[in-house]
Design a protein around this nucleic acid. Structure first.
Lengths: 151, 151
DNA sequence: ATGAGTAAGTTCCCTTAGGAAACTGAACTT
DNA sequence: AAGTTCAGTTTCCTAAGGGAACTTACTCAT
């Protein structure tokens, strides 16, 4: 398919997509987040082809989203764990969940609920400004060129 | 490629990916968000193939993320605009930007900056709990089965 | 009125990526 | 010795992406 390279674009969305934009990658991340960390487990629960799963895992490890660690030497067995970068990527999953729950869950309601440790309540994420703390949807923003803008 | 259907999974992440998970879709959304709303404009700025662009636009219109509207009857000319669903999807882009700025921007710094209308400051999004308002990263959450969970 | 230009797609061909299923290797189990 | 498990790899086939040319419908300058 000779897919276009997003990584070289002067756009943080494109660069982020370059890392986790491939089909399946976010679902692999979600699986590891919920404790499904081994190859066969992931293959079975997702229904992904083993070839593609192996490719994606290698890519995510190479990009320091995941860490491949040996949990048994004899026989040699490996599992995957989130790095710091990978853990922060899970925030993106939370926002996907929120949108999917809101617009695609339908009559049945959301498939999973999220309980916040700090308050113990079932809730969801909201986007706030890092400076003033008020709501910060995409519509409340002006976009300006930054230091890393293309020439 | 006979790609696996994500839309039927009992997972809001998979369902959201079904809608905007295809390669290019988030970048198309971003373009419309920043005012690049016409076919040829998008094709040129993204470097996407015209075929794929046409497919993606049709898909996004069918899924009520975008609206195709005629801005000239003679000659017939169309542009694309965000629906309410589409506008809320842009929140996802904000979170991608945040992650990309933080982990992939490097020495040059972020390519674009975001000024929040409410406070006028350059800032970025943070995830907070909709109930208590405190920070709500993926690590501060317990996942529970919800009403729409699979049998 | 003729020819050039523009917007928004389509169509065609070629390459490459994804899916399915079988195969591999190294150890453990009975 | 045979079967099982885990973690992949290999092979074959089909479908999706890229590039470029083509189409349609109109406007504008000459």
């Amino acid at each position: 398919m000779q897919r276009t390279d997003f990584g070289g674009m002067a756009c943080s969305i494109a660069r982020t997509l370059d890392v986790i934009g491939e089909p399946w990658s976010p679902l692999i991340l979600r699986n590891i987040y919920v404790g499904i960390t081994r190859f066969d487990q992931m293959q079975q629960t997702l229904g992904i082809s083993r070839k593609v799963l192996a490719e994606r895992l290698r890519w995510l490890v190479d990009h320091e989203i995941l860490e491949r660690r040996e949990y048994s030497t004899r026989p040699p067995r490996h599992e995957y764990a989130l790095t710091e970068r990978g853990t922060e990527l899970c925030d993106l999953l939370m926002v996907m969940v929120r949108w999917g729950d809101r617009w695609l869950a339908g009559e049945a309601g959301p498939p999973v609920l999220y309980r916040h440790h700090a308050c113990g309540q079932i809730s969801h994420v909201e986007l706030n400004c890092s400076v003033c703390g008020k709501p910060m949807p995409a519509t409340s923003i002006d976009v300006l060129p930054g230091p890393g803008a293309a020439a």
